[in-house]
Design a protein around this nucleic acid. Sequence first.
DNA 1: GATTCTTCC
DNA 2: CATATGGAAGAATCT
Length: 893
Amino acid sequence: MDKWILIDGSSIAFRAFFAMPTLTNAAGIHTNAVYGFATMLLKLIEEEKPTHMLVAFDAGKVTFRHEGYEDYKGGREKTPPELSEQFPLIKELLDALGVAHYELENYEADDIIGTLSRMAEEAGKETLIVTGDKDMLQLVSDRVTVAITRKGISEVERFTPEAIREKYGLTPLQIIDLKGLMGDASDNIPGIPGVGEKTALKLLHEYGSVENVLANAAALKGKMREKVEQHREDALMSKRLATIYREVPLDRGEAEIAYNGYDRPTLAAALRKLGFRSLIERLGLDHAEAGSGAGADAAGGAGPEAAELRIVRQTPETAAELAADKLAEAEAVLIESAGENPHQASLIGVAIVIGDTVHVLTGDVLKSEGAAAVRDWLADPERPKTGYDLHKAALVLGWEGMELNGFGFDVLLAAYLLDPTGGNDALSSLAAKYNQPPVKPDDAVYGKGAKFAVPDEETLAGHLASKADAIRRIAPLQQQELERLGMHRLYYELEQPLSRVLCKMERQGIAVDAEALEENGRELERQIADTIAAIYRLAGTEFNLNSPKQLGEILFEKLGLPVKKKTKTGYSTDAEVLEALEPYHEIIGLILHYRQISKLQSTYIEGLLKEIRKETGKVHTYYRQTIAATGRLSSQFPNLQNIPIRIEEGRRIRKAFVPSEPGWYILAADYSQIELRVLAHISGDERLKEAFLSGMDIHTKTAMDVFGVPADQVDANMRRQAKAVNFGIVYGISDFGLATNLKIARKEAAAFIEQYFAVFRGVRQYMDDIVAKARQDGYVTTLLERRRYLPEINASNYNLRSFAERTAMNTPIQGTAADIIKLAMVKMDAELRDRGLRSRMLLQVHDELVFEVPEDELETMKELVPSVMENAIELDVPLKAEVSYGKNWYEAK
DNA sequence: GATTCTTCC
DNA sequence: CATATGGAAGAATCT
């Protein structure tokens, strides 16, 4: 005897999601609904022994029901992303189980099931429908049983016609009338207002159907009669909406949904990938996985095989084959370079995927006359290119005299947004992650460090081709993922446009006055020599001052100073320790001074001088857009985001940063307290918002509130302490951290924090909520939906967990601030272009933008820059940007 | 390559 | 009981 099981996949997934505790796999993807689904399916398979099985899903958002009633399912909360991300996994699981699944545009899962159950019935088969939705009861018959999930998903209640009669006193078809009268809030089906289940049942017991109730409305009494008469149309429409359509044009039938059991190795691999070890064990699948070479990440048992690629190595003679019309069909491009610094890297080659062929051009070939069309294609902004690290590629090409325009989709940038903590963003890792044919790690092909070498051309072409092919395969998967996670706009409207803005800034570079640096360096050299001599004299011996190990021996063994702190390997000699030792010995102050000036000399004088381009007199930093887990940029070669400012001697370094054209100015604008303003916005704390709306100095205001005194009683020390608390709050404070910072007792620090939270209640609420949410979801987000996974938020190790908790508190703040200045940068770039200004944006330092400005644009820019920054986004508190300018970066303060 | 220390926001 | 404020890059030493 055949037995069909038809499952309402959407409804069961929903039930499972809310019934199961949070669960994530190694990749940080939620899997609780998948797990619930898996256990339920396995139980059904085991207990019911079905001969046919199908899981139906709702397709898109719009169905035929919307044609007559646009508000159908209106007002329904959108599916939580933590659930939507699980649907692909559920479908993979079904594939591994060998269970058919189906969805059809324009129809809901109900309709598909209704149609199949009708077919089963007509063929005389026995059918079990599994759902969480009572509507389905209308499908019950002598041969069709409906099982409705009850609390959780493991328990079900089975409905036969008798069961329905017993419970409701209705026939299965009358379930439709029931809903017609009472409506369904979750689907936004109106029914008759004021009629709930009780009244609806009473009416149906008396009159039998919606139509008959309406026909006999006159017989009803009082309010009831009024309501029924007023809402005749609603009732009829509701009945229509509630009726499951059983004539869906399906391209699946008995043959397609036949169930023949699952393949054990395949299922084992799928469960392993999901991280469901308990299920593997329960099913005794521990050693069922076939093959071992495919790697642990392989899905569906088989694992991806090496791609069959047709590789064409173009030469200067043949490259003309790649004409514009052919290039227009290109699906992906890889631009490979050698070297970390894109301003110095050399072009290795280019691989372009067109159909089933990958065309590979080495750097020389790309530069040859024959490849003119390829260069034109690369430079054409109207031809969007899908690639990997287009930002770096554009810079490398740029220095080789070629252009790259038309950033279509960037797999590196997308990988960063999808998981910014990454590290696993190399194409070799991404190919494995997305189950695509393997790509060799670059190290394996080129060697690393000093051994780096470009291999023979055939090996090289194979490697570049496999990378280009991986780009083509991965890009659409990432696009879907970005869409699914609501990060589409973050990618297309912020990060991708920003990558082009960054290229411009980097190519532009900032002029550095080498003479001034050298002069500064000579003076430092003298000071360093004097200081070293004095230190050796006091120490009574010469040693390597730059070696913490040797310094430790001198201080703690020879001079017998007290040991304050130890490192893994020995004595700590960091600034904090030395400051504590200052009263003990004259030498300490000198060492601190030495540390300070030698840092200036080595990093900022010598380091910077090395980075100046002889030809242009400029330094060209490289902003890295895919490094910082919070969404900030970082800066390399040289790092222009940590040029000294706090100490005057260091600050003078900034005098060497000058405009690149005579008579121009350096103009800088920085956000005032952007992180605390962001905190005020996202926490909604009234006190903090009010502080910013009042325009007062925030640390003074904090001191007033925390110490409960008027403004004129806040002394410098109170303000300093309030400032430290404010910083601590932003970073995810602990009493110990604040105590160290303020050099006070931990208890005192704890009291400060307690007092702060007592005043800024909204902030405490935010901190509690965000940690709870991170625990729930496994990730946190910024205002623009930038996401950071925190897998350790549920760790049993206190250290790991605490760190994750502080990260949960800090990342939305720091990340939102990063979102905002990035927005300002994209807008600023557009303004400069649209207004035809000659001023150029040169640097970003997290909350600051630096420009070079011709004199006649000073007035404009003094207004425009802060205005763009302040209006980059609207928060519940105003944003404030302060602008200044001068003949160099030092003067722009 | 890891460790220590300093610089910035 | 131990814990110990977020995010980065670079220079130097030492293993």
